[in-house]
Design a protein around this nucleic acid. Sequence first.
DNA 1: ACTTAACCGAGACGGTACGTCGCGTCTTTTT
DNA 2: AAAAAGACGCGACGTACCGTCTCGGTTAAGT
Lengths: 207, 207, 207, 207
Amino acid sequence: METQPRDRRGGRQRDPAADSAIIDAVLDLVAAGATLTGLSLVAIAKQAGVSRNSVYRRWKTKDELYLDVLETINAPRSSPAGAGTRDDLAVLLRTLAERVADTRASAMLRALNAEAATFPRLHGRYFEEIVAPRREAMDSVLRRGVERGEIRPELDPGLISELLVSPLLARMASGATDRLDPERTARQIVDLVLDGAAAGAAPSPRP
Amino acid sequence: METQPRDRRGGRQRDPAADSAIIDAVLDLVAAGATLTGLSLVAIAKQAGVSRNSVYRRWKTKDELYLDVLETINAPRSSPAGAGTRDDLAVLLRTLAERVADTRASAMLRALNAEAATFPRLHGRYFEEIVAPRREAMDSVLRRGVERGEIRPELDPGLISELLVSPLLARMASGATDRLDPERTARQIVDLVLDGAAAGAAPSPRP
Amino acid sequence: METQPRDRRGGRQRDPAADSAIIDAVLDLVAAGATLTGLSLVAIAKQAGVSRNSVYRRWKTKDELYLDVLETINAPRSSPAGAGTRDDLAVLLRTLAERVADTRASAMLRALNAEAATFPRLHGRYFEEIVAPRREAMDSVLRRGVERGEIRPELDPGLISELLVSPLLARMASGATDRLDPERTARQIVDLVLDGAAAGAAPSPRP
Amino acid sequence: METQPRDRRGGRQRDPAADSAIIDAVLDLVAAGATLTGLSLVAIAKQAGVSRNSVYRRWKTKDELYLDVLETINAPRSSPAGAGTRDDLAVLLRTLAERVADTRASAMLRALNAEAATFPRLHGRYFEEIVAPRREAMDSVLRRGVERGEIRPELDPGLISELLVSPLLARMASGATDRLDPERTARQIVDLVLDGAAAGAAPSPRP
DNA sequence: ACTTAACCGAGACGGTACGTCGCGTCTTTTT
DNA sequence: AAAAAGACGCGACGTACCGTCTCGGTTAAGT
């Protein structure tokens, strides 16, 4: 995460508090409605309470700064226990819901999605490092579910996956992340997607 | 849709082509990645091939201009035939999917969502005039489905509705609107949400 | 003297008052002690009471601006009547003395001399257009003086010329331009250089 | 000349070479065209090859530094032998011419003159310690010349003095100090000022 | 036909924000 | 304790863009 290794042969040390103050400032400003292109290093410096110089010294471009901001909100992945498909999916969705409930992270990712065209490199990294692993985890659970006979094998796994995560992603996109109970919401979504809404579809028995 | 009535006592007429050229310019620029705050009337004028004056003469602020842009992409609502819950939902989703497949409209709404905080008035109108009626239509279909005994009555209708529309909204938010077959996708989503993905949940017989 | 001809096909006209206000500002600031390198277009704009934009629009670089300032202080040359060498020299020196007595012009030229290395193009123009013609005029008078038998022919005309103008140039350089009576000072210098200070050198009879 | 006595209680000694390196740097930079206000301690440090700290440790302000630079170029005064007015004046002028021929000293004094308003204290010291004594010496020689009957008594001694030194001062001001033969130039000036340029003014016999 | 009034493009204008640069100070490591 | 390296806050600079204002030229309605 350090921006520049640099030869440390002398000179004053960089204030480590400034690093986090700047990253915090970005998150706060984006959460307050700023766009990634509209956000200026000047405004960031003011919000962080440091001089413009201290920002430019650490990051040459907004791209590089945002990259480090993304690293910051990249929470550790959850690892489902493998007890059962329903529970495993609930664990994955709960972890996603928790991130969605984090107002600042949510705002940052929403902004990044909206301006993907302007920050292709950034969006690429976001996809590779954050989206892809979690998508793979969910696919893995679904595959195991099919093997166990818990998931209808004739369905497109991608579609199931999309239906599961979309409600949370749509909330993130619309900014309606308040009053989101991760545990409860994750469970509701999984149950509904697994059991279906049609009256004829009797809900499977659950422990 | 006309912005100013004005006294028409004489003088040169406004070029009607300019109106649509400007609105087109907004849609093109937003589709190309511009944000609503970042987009300037100057850039719009250049893209539209008219002078700044011609833009300012028609709309005093970006807010008012965007309002008219929103009107433009407000396609007529679909009206489900009422043949059956499954088909009615499919009709509604197909209409939504078609709008999502429209790259420019999709980009405009994505931008509006991302910057809702900056354009509260605009976002409010968008919600009232576009989202609310369609949401009400879906709720109505679901209510009728419960009465008909086609939808499990103990479920939260809001959750079902959310699950149905979220896949399309999430696609709109992420910009992954290419290669979207509205008819097919709408049908797939409705089937999966109604029938469920669990192996035990036998798919209801369909005509 | 006009900076840019420009195609005048439309658009608002430049405020002609701003042109002179800016040039006046330069002269005032330089007279107040500013150096040509130290003087910024920002400071000039503030002093002139116009926006930075209005300065940059007219002149891209300080060089071009200073060039026009030089034109402004380039007073019309004097033309000696040819009545006699002594009187002709006095006329030339009085004209020079008048320019030296002009505080602002004097300061400008002093600054230009001091920073000739930084503004070679400017210094070159100054030399060609202001210094050279006047130097040539004086050489011409001296040549005629030799022909008339009024100037000792064995002397270096360049040295005589240098002795005549140097007192005024030195005053200009040192900034001691107050209380300078052009008429009287010019006459005194010419008399002394022509007649000499040595006791043996009897002053030539004058009308 | 040492700036601060300081308690020498231990620790590393100041590098004596740095002192002269810094002063040399100032002279070189000014000779290269830098102004006194425009010259920064940073640029001086870089030119001298020392750290900024090493400059600031020795001199708190540019004023104090320039003062020591002035001391450096303050060559010892000449003392005319008193053999005769013509020779005495030539000695004084030759000394002045030698200083003028020193490119770096000349540039420094030229810069100081141009920016006298910005450095009043510095300019005052320069006047008191360098100009005044030499002016007094010349006045003294001229007074003795009048007493000896070698200088016309009705002339203003100040004017004679001004005419004698101005050619050299003007050269210093204009920077045209190359190819200046101090001995020859001084002699030429004295002869011309004493004997006059007019044909009627017979040159006094010289040894 | 002539006046009038609005539109249109072009561009000057004041204001604001940006990213850069340089300054003088402060801090840390090395000599 | 001096020296070198470099981070830091501050401020100025030149640029770019924005929204307004002001031109000459054009077009259509009303006399």
